[in-house]
C-alpha cells in the first residue's frame, strides 16, 4: 500500500484562477466584492455575503493570525514526511477568511493563539502551490 496516496489536484475554474495564479507567484490573492465590499474565501464561486459575481482580485498583505494547529503523525503527503505541522489562520484584511497552511519550521509551537504570522506560498514539484507560514518578521 502506498503510504502517501497521490492526491487529486485542485481544479482551477474561472472564479478561482486569480487565487491560484497569485499562489503560484507567492501572493495571497482574494476577491473583493464590488457590491458589498466583502473579501471572499479563496475558492468562493461568488461573494458568499451577497452572491454578487462582480468582484475584483486584491493582493493581500499576507499578515495572518494563528487560530488552530495540529501535528500530523501519519504520512499524509508525498514529499512531506511526518510529523507535519498544520495551522489554520485568519487573514488580517478579513478575519472571517481562514486559510490552512503548512508550518514547515514548526514556529507555531511556541506561539499563542492569535499570534501574528506571515502567510506565503510554496510550490510542489508538480507545480501545485500550497500555503505556508513563517514568522511575522519574515
Amino acid at each position: 500500500m502506498d503510504s502517501t496516496l497521490d492526491r487529486p489536484l485542485p481544479v482551477t475554474t474561472l472564479e478561482t484562477e486569480p487565487f491560484w495564479e497569485g499562489a503560484r507567484a507567492g501572493r495571497l490573492v482574494l476577491m473583493r466584492c464590488a457590491e458589498c465590499g466583502r473579501l471572499a474565501p479563496p475558492l468562493a464561486p461568488r461573494c458568499p455575503a451577497c452572491l454578487s459575481a462582480a468582484r475584483a482580485p486584491q493582493t493581500c498583505s499576507g499578515r495572518v493570525s494563528l487560530r488552530g494547529r495540529t501535528v500530523l503523525h501519519l504520512p499524509a503527503l508525498p514529499g512531506h514526511p511526518p510529523p507535519l505541522v498544520v495551522v489554520e489562520c485568519a487573514v488580517a484584511e478579513e478575519p472571517a477568511v481562514m486559510l490552512v497552511a503548512l508550518d514547515p519550521e514548526g514556529i507555531s509551537e511556541r506561539l499563542p493563539p492569535g499570534a501574528a504570522l506571515r502567510l506565503g506560498f510554496a510550490t510542489e514539484a508538480n507545480g501545485q502551490a500550497y500555503a505556508v507560514v513563517a514568522g511575522a518578521g519574515a
Binding site: 502517501t4 496516496l5 492526491r7 487529486p8 489536484l9 485542485p10 481544479v11 478561482t16 474565501p41 479563496p42 475558492l43 488552530g68 494547529r69 495540529t70 500530523l72 501519519l74 499524509a76 503527503l77 512531506h80 507535519l84 498544520v86 489554520e88 490552512v100 497552511a101 503548512l102 510542489e124 501545485q128 500550497y130 500555503a131
Partner: peptide
C-alpha cells in the same frame, strides 16, 4: 482524499490529513 472537492481544494495540500486533521483542529 476525494471526500469533498471544495474542502480539499481549500486545504491543499494539507487536507491530506483527512478527517483526523480536521477533528484535531476542532479539538485543539
Amino acid at each position: 482524499a476525494r471526500f469533498s472537492q471544495a474542502s480539499q481544494d481549500a486545504v491543499y495540500p494539507v487536507g491530506a490529513g483527512g478527517p483526523n486533521a480536521s477533528f484535531a483542529m476542532i479539538t485543539d
